Simulated scan of single mutants.
Amino acid sequence: MSKKVKKIMVVTLACVLLSGSMAFTATSAPKKIDIILNEKEIKTQAGTGAKIIDNRVYIPATVLRSARFSVEYKNSTLHLMNSYFHYTRNLMEMHVFNHVFTTRFNKIDQEVVNIMGKVILEEPVDFSKLQEFIEETESNAGILPDNFTPVLDYNSYDFSHAWQSVEAYKKAVHELIAYVDTGDKEKLKSFYQERKQALEYYDLYTNVYDLIFKASFTSAVR
Rank of each mutant, 00 (worst) to 15 (best):
S160E: 06
L121R: 02
S156F: 15
K6V: 03
W163F: 15
E111H: 12
T182Q: 13
V5F: 11
V71W: 10
K6N: 06
E200F: 08
I35D: 02
S160Y: 06
V112N: 02
M94K: 04
Q131Y: 02
Y87C: 08
T62K: 15
N38I: 14
F97Q: 01
K3F: 15
A162C: 05
V113P: 05
R195Y: 04
A168H: 12
M94N: 08
E132G: 00
E39C: 07
H161E: 08
F24M: 07
N140W: 06
M22Y: 12
K43V: 08
V125G: 07
V173T: 01
K189I: 06
T88E: 10
T218Y: 09
I120K: 10
N155M: 01
F105P: 00
L199P: 02
K32Q: 07
S156T: 07
V151A: 09
F127T: 00
K3L: 11
E135D: 06
L17C: 07
S66C: 08
S83E: 02
V57P: 11
S160T: 03
I33H: 01
Q110K: 11
Q197K: 05
H86K: 12
N90G: 09
Y179G: 00
P150C: 06
C15H: 14
T102H: 13
R65G: 12
S160A: 09
P145K: 12
I59S: 01
A23C: 10
N155V: 05
G117W: 15
L204A: 06
S28L: 14
A198K: 05
T88M: 13
R56F: 15
E72V: 07
S28Q: 13
A178Q: 01
F24Y: 04
L17G: 03
K32R: 13
H161K: 06
E175W: 10
S219K: 09
V100Y: 13
Q197C: 13
H161A: 05
N155Q: 09
N75K: 05
K4M: 07
V151K: 08
F133K: 07
F97T: 02
H99P: 03
G49R: 05
L13S: 08
G49L: 06
P124F: 11
V221L: 02
I52K: 03
A220F: 02
T44D: 15
Y169E: 03
Y58H: 10
L188M: 15
N207V: 08
G183E: 00
Y179R: 01
E200A: 07
Q197F: 06
V57N: 10
S165G: 08
K214F: 07
K7L: 14
R195A: 02
L91T: 04
V166K: 03
G142H: 02
S219C: 13
